[in-house]
Amino acid sequence: MTPLLEVRDLDFAYGDVQVLRGVSLSVNAGEIVTLVGSNGAGKSTTLRNISRLLRPRAGTMVFDGHDLTRLAPHQVVALGVVHVPEARRVFPEMTVLENLRMGSYIASARAERAKNIERGLMLFPRLKERIGQLAGTLSGGEQQMLAIARGLMARPRLLLLDEPSLGLSPLLVRTIFDTIAQINAQGTSVLLVEQNVYQSLRIAARGYVLETGRIALSGTGESLLANSEVKAAFLGA
């Protein structure tokens, strides 16, 4: 079976600083795949290359038969690949509702807009209370909920999630991970970048460990959780 997303030998550098060296990974349809690693390993950079905010030096990225390296960021979104970026990046001077509407900006998503807003608000009831409020005035957790709900508005086939648990309370972290599993159960494939290694490996089918720009380890979520190197490096055991 050909994977939904296949990244092969991705090289990326900021100027002279090589950030990614030959990163290869794949996501099969229906899977949650997680990319874990410490700060600065190149996890976010990998996602930003896939969504085309950054241009790789070398390597191929194919999504459902389409060569992503030939596309502009907005064309990647139109294919059904939605990137929820690090640090939320909600539109601060727009209301919660306007942010959600922006999530369904692409033509194919507009017809189901009302239905998807309803669905997002069901996933995160807190947003319903804040619907008319400017996104910049929300708390960090609420902004994270909004960012995820906004990312789902286009009913993506593949969701790229960057550090959804960053800066959230432990209780909210659990909620967010349960929600990701729930979104996946409804048919969206997920590529999840996380520093919270335990939680993400718990819900992921497969995982990759990124170390200073290289894939150091890969395997099923369970096998990585049991791996002694992973335990030593990330789980404090």
């Binding site: 969504s51 905010l53 960021p73 907005h74 979104v77 139109a78 939605v82 990137h83 929820v84 970026p85 990046r89 909600v90 539109f91 601060p92 001077e93 727009m94 922006m102 999530g103 900006y105 692409i106 906004r150 286009a154």
Partner: peptide, 15 residues
Amino acid sequence: RATAQDRDAAQLMGV
């Protein structure tokens, strides 16, 4: 407006 507020995030919405 989205482009004015956050250019990268706007691109990620398909703008």
